[in-house]
Design a binder for these strands. Sequence first.
DNA 1: TTAACTGCAAAGAGTTTGCAATATC
DNA 2: GATATTGCAAACTCTTTGCAGTTAA
Lengths: 189, 189
Amino acid sequence: MESFNKATTKENTSRTEQLIEMYLKRLKQCGFRMTNQRRIIIEILLKNLGRHLNVKELLNIAQKEDPTIGIATIYRTVDLLTGLGLLNMINLEEGFSRFEVPDEQMHFHFYCKSCGKVVHLPDEEDKTKTVMQWAQKEGFKLLPQTFELAGICPECINEGVVEEDFCHIKRPICEKRCKKHRRRWRHEN
Amino acid sequence: MESFNKATTKENTSRTEQLIEMYLKRLKQCGFRMTNQRRIIIEILLKNLGRHLNVKELLNIAQKEDPTIGIATIYRTVDLLTGLGLLNMINLEEGFSRFEVPDEQMHFHFYCKSCGKVVHLPDEEDKTKTVMQWAQKEGFKLLPQTFELAGICPECINEGVVEEDFCHIKRPICEKRCKKHRRRWRHEN
DNA sequence: TTAACTGCAAAGAGTTTGCAATATC
DNA sequence: GATATTGCAAACTCTTTGCAGTTAA
């Protein structure tokens, strides 16, 4: 319970509570039942707005509140919320999905391949307009989604990480190194 | 052999051959061995520039030339080529990866969630510049990559497909429908 | 009360890997 | 001849599903 309050400062608490209420109400409106498991998962998601949690992280946190909760419920709940447009699925080519509460229409994430951090780019409304224009010009209709830009963050650049570290392998020996790197971001347990 | 020549018009053949040579040479330069399997896979990739093949498709086509080729070899080869920067991995949230030969630095794909088609947006150089500026402004260094914009294509819009068809589910009964939809793009066999 | 929901365990799908056999340099 | 590479099968990871028991409305 402590652990997922970190991202919530005092002044944000009431806003968070409002959002939670809104989410629960929306579920009910749509004809779904309000179960304890769903409440727990929604609370975790809304109290960790800055983070991009994956299923195992959600499970670990949720089990602190209800140790009997199963991973299938996590999958079914994020599926449900995603289907209702209350959650965005994010893919960083890690071999699994992450999830984020959408607070505007679209998001632009920068994902550091070196340290794994994910940050939001600013001016997401402008960027959204730009991307929508790209699509409209060809007659396409964009669906709400997030965009992931992969690269190296300023901190890692400072530490001397360079593009070549990311698998522009030159010798057989490097093949193993690169594979190991690819797996670095896998779930831990 | 016939099947993967479709995308190659006559005037492109010599260019394709050149590219194949270039790829094989690059492998050798980097200290990797030139095996028959690798040659077959590289030829398939370069003779299907317009398509975005996945591992099973690669395997099926490759086995027409050498029925003994295994799926592990496909995985190891696309890993190798991706690591060398000779191939781009593409993720369309289908549950598996697709691959594309990079002909410039970055790509902008539009992926129709209704019919599954993938097309390239025009003016990729301009769009690349735009996206690089977004990153540079925050001090990030972008790595070469592709961007996937998901939506509905003009043809499907004409056929009456609308945004709501994509899982803004309203009732419990819809949950199953949406799940079925999500699985629609899985591998066939 | 009844239908939606859950947990469990098993199944599925994609991907990786250990190893003996093979092919390349 | 040394060793990088392959095919196979098994293992692994993430995700979905069938079902019996539980719970919300």
